[in-house]
């Protein structure tokens, strides 16, 4: 379903901009998490550990001795690598700084969703592989949430892609850059709300999952990674923060596309890089501030939230045909 003429050609400059996006995501994702923790700490009246703390944690974890729990197999060892690899691929595919990405026709919305799901599935299997009660429980909850979130992503995607006639991400972003009316249309607004709920669910944020909880009754993502240690845990944490960054980046690319470079000229890309960092930083800050006022939803209420967002996505698709 890649959109024919646009975005299918792969140029050296496009590859360079994709490499830039990947480097930006790897370096910036832990800082984004640090910023969000810092904002939360300040609102709670704390001093906070500083924006660089996630990087200090990662450095420490990389220096620790690897430890493989008894009874775990290759699945457990490879899952963090799969998660990081899929997050890197997604970071290269979504047009964060320039619509000329280095992946051409592969920069497809459906491919992006599939890659993110592959990462989730790998970690859920690793959770099962540990054979512990928490691992299995976390995996089952994560797959429940994913199964409910995926249809919404695809529906919202169709609403955005029917107008362009392509699911190619650069093509969608390019079309909305050329015609701002697309972004401020009812279709786009409905899809934006639908995708926002899904971003929260997929990134494991409140009210779906609490990233800082360690309570048995509420853990989802944390329960799956309880057995990881040292460098493996560093990869899991890096992947989790990159996931949050690319999901916020995807949302901003689809609904706040302004500033994304349409060429690969150095000044345009440099400006777009600064603007993109700013956009994701502001989105993260808003999310962190909003989370202070929110409690986690009871697990059995989560399907209601996700069903609501699916309804919005269906309305967006309907609206894209009628309006």
């Amino acid at each position: 379903m890649s959109g024919g003429a646009f975005g299918t050609e792969v140029t050296a400059a496009g590859v360079a901009s994709s490499v830039l996006q990947v480097a930006l995501t790897v370096a910036g994702a832990p800082l984004l998490v640090g910023l969000m923790r810092q904002i939360r700490a300040r609102m709670e009246g704390r001093a906070g550990a500083g924006v660089g703390q996630p990087w200090r944690d990662l450095r420490k974890l990389m220096r620790k001795k690897p430890l493989a729990p008894d009874g775990t197999g290759p699945l457990f060892r490879t899952a963090p690598l799969v998660q990081v690899a899929t997050a890197l691929m997604v970071a290269a595919a979504i047009p964060f700084v320039s619509v000329r990405t280095g992946l051409g026709g592969a920069a497809d919305l459906i491919a992006v969703v599939a890659l993110l799901t592959l990462g989730t599935a790998a970690l859920a299997l690793a959770g099962l592989d540990t054979g512990t009660a928490f691992g299995g429980m976390g995996a089952s909850r994560e797959m429940t949430i994913t199964a409910l979130a995926e249809p919404t992503v695809l529906m919202a995607t169709f609403a955005l892609s029917t107008r362009v006639g392509s699911t190619n991400l650069p093509a969608i972003v390019d079309a909305s850059l050329k015609d701002a009316g697309r972004v401020i249309s009812p279709v786009s607004v409905l899809a934006a709300f639908a995708l926002a709920a899904v971003v929260l669910a997929e990134a494991g944020r409140l009210p779906v999952d609490n990233p800082s909880t360690h309570l048995e009754l509420t853990m989802v993502h944390e329960a799956m990674v309880l057995e990881y240690s040292g460098p493996d845990l560093a990869l899991v944490e890096l992947a989790a923060s990159m996931r949050l960054a690319v999901l916020l980046g995807l949302w901003s690319a689809l609904f706040l596309p302004w500033g994304t470079a349409t060429s690969t000229g150095v000044p345009a890309v440099a400006g777009a890089t600064v603007l993109f960092t700013l956009k994701v930083g502001v989105l993260g800050a808003v999310l962190a501030a909003g989370e202070v006022f929110m409690a986690k939803l009871r697990l059995f209420r989560v399907p209601e939230l996700l069903a609501g967002s699916f309804l919005l996505a269906v309305l967006a698709v309907a609206a894209s045909f009628f309006l």
């Binding site: 700490a41 704390r46 001093a47 906070g48 550990a49 500083g50 703390q53 200090r56 944690d57 360690h214 853990m219 944390e222 309880l226």
Partner: peptide, 9 residues
């Protein structure tokens, strides 16, 4: 927390 110490599960 501000000294880089965190409780884990």
């Amino acid at each position: 927390d501000r000294y880089g110490v965190r409780l884990v599960a």
